[in-house]
Computed example of a mutant assay.
Amino acid sequence: MTTKADIDIALTQLQGKSPQEVLTWTLEQLHPHVALASSFGAEDVVLIDMMAKIRPDACVFTLDTGRLPYETYDVLAAIRQKYPQLQIQVMFPQTDTVQQMVQDKGINLFYDSVENRKQCCYIRKVEPLNRALAGLKSWITGLRRDQTTNRADMRVIELDAERSISKINPLIDWTNDQVWEYIHQNGVPYNALHDKNYPSIGCAPCTRAIAPGEDLRAGRWWWEQSNQECGLHVNEQGELVRSKA
């Protein structure tokens, strides 16, 4: 599925289906050439539980930026223990590139400018993501429409035009309440920071708790105020990487 025509055909089959039905179709069609990109946030652990029940040896990868909260490592360990057959790949940034960046601009360069923050995100997240996706035919995400205005018109399956593979979003129609209802009903391990008002969790220095009434993504790169994306799902122009409707 590398063209818009392919995506449109798949969309007719997946539109309106439950997340489990979307994942069943995806794993039947594409395993082992499809993987969930997981930061072990609430949406991702829901998808992991669903995938493990459909295909216990499903593929998952995560990006260890070197700046993650310890709570994220705790939930990764818990997920490995609960779903031992899952194929979980941990991707790391290139050591030499990180070392040069820190030497040139400092350990917390991202606070100094948007350009520095984007450079750090690219080196620690986007470049490892590109390596993780190499050789895959599709990737699965935990994106939901109501997370940000940027994502409001996303579809259950889209073309990642930058990488010429498909992107599948099984939870695109779910609400935050549905995510948490599933977690509690199924006993899914989750990041302890969620209980401290962290709805969206990335690197430790780039994530804070949110206040009541704040946007769900307000705790990410809060010093930039308007920014809501790290680069994993956008192109160089800041636009979502996707096929056009």
Score class of each variant (00 low, 15 high):
residue 80 R to D: 07
residue 21 E to W: 10
residue 14 L to G: 06
residue 69 P to Q: 08
residue 75 V to S: 00
residue 173 D to A: 09
residue 41 G to C: 06
residue 108 N to V: 12
residue 68 L to M: 13
residue 4 K to F: 00
residue 86 L to N: 05
residue 101 M to A: 05
residue 196 K to S: 08
residue 89 Q to M: 08
residue 228 Q to V: 15
residue 200 S to I: 13
residue 182 Y to A: 08
residue 207 T to P: 10
residue 226 S to Y: 07
residue 159 L to G: 02
residue 56 P to T: 05
residue 229 E to W: 13
residue 210 I to T: 15
residue 145 R to N: 01
residue 221 W to D: 08
residue 105 K to M: 01
residue 138 S to K: 04
residue 188 V to E: 01
residue 39 S to T: 07
residue 129 L to C: 02
residue 215 D to V: 12
residue 157 I to E: 08
residue 230 C to T: 09
residue 40 F to P: 09
residue 3 T to V: 07
residue 66 G to E: 11
residue 204 A to E: 14
residue 216 L to E: 13
residue 224 E to W: 02
residue 84 P to D: 05
residue 220 R to I: 13
residue 216 L to P: 07
residue 133 L to D: 07
residue 221 W to V: 04
residue 214 E to Y: 05
residue 32 P to K: 10
residue 41 G to E: 08
residue 102 V to D: 03
residue 62 T to M: 10
residue 139 W to G: 03
residue 106 G to F: 02
residue 138 S to W: 01
residue 159 L to D: 04
residue 194 H to G: 05
residue 175 T to F: 02
residue 125 K to P: 02
residue 179 V to R: 00
residue 232 L to S: 00
residue 39 S to W: 00
residue 17 K to N: 12
residue 26 T to Q: 12
residue 58 A to L: 08
residue 189 P to R: 11
residue 194 H to I: 11
residue 130 N to C: 01
residue 235 N to S: 03
residue 141 T to S: 15
residue 189 P to L: 11
residue 97 T to F: 00
residue 183 I to R: 03
residue 92 F to A: 06
residue 217 R to N: 10
residue 206 C to D: 12
residue 117 R to C: 14
residue 1 M to W: 02
residue 141 T to N: 03
residue 36 L to W: 09
residue 240 L to W: 03
residue 183 I to E: 07
residue 193 L to K: 07
residue 83 Y to S: 08
residue 122 Y to E: 09
residue 98 V to S: 00
residue 77 A to T: 14
residue 94 Q to W: 02
residue 53 K to A: 12
residue 243 S to D: 15
residue 218 A to K: 09
residue 59 C to W: 00
residue 55 R to V: 05
residue 234 V to L: 02
residue 223 W to V: 07
residue 43 E to R: 00
residue 1 M to K: 10
residue 143 L to F: 01
residue 226 S to E: 15
residue 126 V to P: 04
residue 93 P to R: 11
residue 95 T to H: 13
residue 59 C to N: 15
residue 228 Q to F: 13
residue 80 R to Y: 05
residue 244 K to R: 11
residue 191 N to P: 10
residue 79 I to D: 01
residue 119 Q to K: 13
residue 85 Q to M: 13
residue 81 Q to N: 14
residue 117 R to G: 04
residue 39 S to A: 15
residue 95 T to A: 08
residue 66 G to A: 10
residue 185 Q to A: 15
residue 19 P to C: 12
residue 164 S to L: 06
residue 14 L to V: 06
residue 77 A to R: 12
residue 122 Y to Q: 04
residue 191 N to G: 09
residue 151 R to P: 12
residue 181 E to Y: 03
residue 198 Y to N: 07
residue 150 N to W: 05
residue 215 D to T: 09
residue 178 Q to M: 14
residue 183 I to C: 06
residue 90 V to Y: 00
residue 228 Q to A: 14
residue 98 V to M: 06
residue 27 L to A: 06
residue 153 D to G: 05
residue 189 P to K: 12
residue 58 A to F: 06
residue 216 L to W: 04
residue 124 R to Q: 13
